[in-house]
């Protein structure tokens, strides 16, 4: 039986290694066929912001990886509305991350779901394993 895994991403994609190494764990959990969700809170919302370009800081960009997660059945991206608002961001500033729904003739569907802080608390309370990075 699979468990519900939630990865809580709270840090900006660059500046520290947390986001990159968190993605590595997400891929492993998916390989173990667990029910994986991602939460983006605080500066973590920048991890899936559009138009990331790391050339100037000499680091490998990895933002494209988020869009590939759908192929591993990782398609529940909960983004906290208040965290976006506090940073002057809207859903339009986020990458259009999608997955193909195998139960709906492989229709392309959005993976990102914007939720309120209260809804995020509810989603978190439903998890078996919460890993915070």
């Amino acid at each position: 039986m699979s468990k519900k895994f939630m990865y809580v991403n709270r840090k900006a994609p660059y500046g520290t290694v947390y986001a990159l190494e968190s993605l590595e764990v997400v891929l492993i959990a998916a390989a173990f066929e667990q029910d994986v969700s991602l939460a983006f809170i605080d500066d973590g919302v920048y991890q899936i912001a559009k138009g990331q370009d790391t050339k100037g800081i000499g680091m490998k960009g990895f933002s494209a990886t988020y869009n590939a997660l759908g192929d591993y059945d990782v398609n529940k991206f909960y983004v906290e509305r208040e965290s976006l608002e506090e940073r002057g961001l809207t859903e339009d500033d986020l990458m259009p991350i999608v997955y193909e729904d195998e139960n709906d003739d492989w229709a392309e569907k959005p993976s990102v779901k914007i939720v309120s802080r209260a809804e995020m608390a509810q989603v978190l309370s439903e998890q078996d394993v919460t890993l915070s990075f």
Binding site: K3, Y18, I28, A29, A31, F32, Q34, V129, T130, L131
Partner: peptide, 21 residues
């Protein structure tokens, strides 16, 4: 060892506790 040991630990244990920043 590999990250699989973490996921395996998360599956096997009743609770996972994270110590971090």
């Amino acid at each position: 060892s590999g990250l699989g040991q973490l996921i395996d630990g998360n599956i096997e244990a009743d609770r996972t506790i994270v110590f971090g920043d």
